[in-house]
């Protein structure tokens, strides 16, 4: 029962992540793609925690903890990069 639930939730995370990737490919503006990326990163975090609890290994959860704390640096870098690109004279999409 316990392992079945954890496995099912891992598959659910993967299914939601696939829809987020679809949104990221479809998204008309770069802000839409960033929105899909934030949801995707949260889903990856949930997947890591479920995997660590299922295998019952604390080392996997350390990886999830560091991903949790420093995950937002990626969005910060992408947002800064896009802002610089737009302010160079190109109009936003």
């Amino acid at each position: 029962m316990r392992l079945l639930m954890l496995d099912a939730m891992q598959w659910f995370c993967i299914a939601c992540a696939l829809f987020c990737v679809l949104r990221m490919l479809l998204g008309p503006t770069s802000a839409d793609r960033l929105v899909a990326l934030t949801v995707l990163s949260s889903l990856v975090l949930g997947f890591l925690v479920l995997r660590g609890v299922r295998e019952n290994r604390a080392l996997y959860l350390d990886v999830a903890l560091v991903y949790d704390i420093f995950g937002f640096l990626g969005f910060l870098a992408i947002a800064r990069f896009l802002k610089d690109k737009f302010s160079d004279g190109d109009s936003p999409e």
């Binding site: 954890l6 995370c13 949801v39 990163s41 949930g46 925690v49 479920l50 604390a58 903890l65």
Partner: peptide
């Protein structure tokens, strides 16, 4: 999807964790 669902998954994982080391790390996360 990115906050509420993931937070519910964390609570469920916390309830299903068997060892103390794993549960403490889930709480910190």
């Amino acid at each position: 999807c990115g906050t509420t669902a993931i937070f519910s998954i964390f609570i469920g994982a916390l309830l299903l964790s068997t060892s103390l080391a794993v549960a403490a790390r889930v709480v910190v996360i």
